[in-house]
Design a binder for these strands. Structure first.
Lengths: 235, 235
DNA sequence: CAAAAAAGAGAGCAGTGCTCTTGCTTCAGA
DNA sequence: TCTGAAGCAAGAGCACTGCTCTCTTTTTTG
């Protein structure tokens, strides 16, 4: 937070940022598998061994990029939500979904890094958890507002799932009804299924007008969690 | 199809299979990034350059593994469908979804290879298209049977999406109503969103009873495409 | 001001994908 | 059945990778 006291400390964060920037450039243009520490160092005019003073391994660099990607996506989604803060819940939901899709199409390799195969290790480091939940929290907020009004119909919930749904609701959003919380988590995962399929070519020769298809699918997702524009407080 | 005439041709397909088997083993245990041509050759007692007589590059080997993975998944899904061929459409739909999930949990690295980040190039080779559509075709068949009965309610369709839905239906299943075809493609993508999120750790600290959660979500997907067990011809 | 900590430079190790050349084996046509 | 051609294995080698270790220089700190 505070400005660094020593010149060395300031240089350190500058060099760290430069490394991440160059690495992000290579990631965006060639993908995670082609990202090379040596190439990053070369481009920055330093020798490769010097880079290990800043990131102890390639995986650590990738982890840093993963966190940044989560933050970048979260920021884009939050900006989109704020831009339509006064609209109906359905519109706000769809706006966030479309922001996720737009960011993913613009940053395919970064998307692959965070929602495709997890490259480093098998379980993500704990430090990636908070940034990873920004989009989820955003969706929770929208649903929270949406179900405030009267006459909302909660999504159905299989009796076997009720205990899990209650536990889940208590975990992520205690003020949400269990059936809504469970449906929301499912919709959250399904949203990224739609985006991932488009991004990774699964829709080739199947879906043509992807913009319209996605908007419609996002609207259906909203219905699935109980969002509807019936008698909203606003507008 | 026919048995090979020359001894050399027979040896070739044997060695090719051995290479793929060993590569699949390494893929399953270490992941795609760690799969090494040299290690495969070493394990098979041959020198690495000899391997290039069978696969011209590492990406070609990976492509072969991708096709095999699609086929393996498709086979598992089809077997599950046949095992409940006499059940209601909803049960058959859920059985296929659960087979997809089970296969993916059992073969995480192969799943990552085909539905995670596409490693070779950016667009999948044409040869991967037919095996990739086996699960989709299976779902189409189930829905086709399901909507035969009377009293089925078609999913809603936004007017802007109607032309695309009609084109899409003509492409993948001309006998299906456009609204069903569009909803089916969306459900297809969403299914893999659910599976991918569980597999890649996105459900950590969120969903606990994943079995029950998935079954419920799969049932909701079935409802979304218009499948219901009301007055089915069977049972 | 001196000791300690941090940073950079370079060599080096083990590994990778891939190419090229050299022999040997198997096949197919006369 | 013999021979030229094609298929295949082996080895050396190139350019690259992640990473470690040592050595020197710079900066910070007690």
């Amino acid at each position: 937070m505070s400005t660094p006291h020593s010149a060395r400390a300031r240089a350190r964060i500058e060099v760290t940022a430069a490394i991440k920037d160059e690495a992000r450039r290579q990631l965006a243009s060639e993908g995670a598998t082609k990202l090379s520490l040596r190439a990053v160092a070369r481009e920055l005019g330093m020798v490769s061994s010097a880079l290990y003073r800043y990131f102890p391994s390639r995986d650590d660099l990738l982890t840093a990029l993963i966190i940044d990607a989560y933050d970048s996506l979260g920021e884009a989604a939050e900006a989109a939500a704020e831009a339509v803060a006064d609209a109906t819940p359905t519109r706000r939901w769809i706006a966030v979904c479309e922001a996720v899709r737009a960011w993913s199409l613009a940053h395919p390799h970064e998307y692959a890094l965070i929602y495709g195969s997890p490259v480093p290790g098998y379980t993500a480091p704990q430090s990636t958890v908070p940034p990873a939940s920004r989009v989820g929290l955003l969706l929770i907020g929208i649903v929270r507002d949406a179900i405030k009004g009267p006459g909302v119909t909660f999504p159905p919930l299989a009796p076997e799932l009720r205990p899990e749904a209650e536990r889940l609701a208590a975990e992520i959003a205690p003020d949400l009804p269990p059936e809504v919380a469970a449906a929301l988590v499912a919709a959250w995962a399904q949203l990224f299924g739609l985006v991932g399929f488009e991004l990774f070519g699964q829709f080739n020769r199947v879906v043509e007008d992807r913009e319209a298809f996605f908007r419609h699918a996002a609207g259906q997702l909203a219905l699935g969690v109980g969002i509807s524009d019936r008698p909203s407080a606003r507008r």
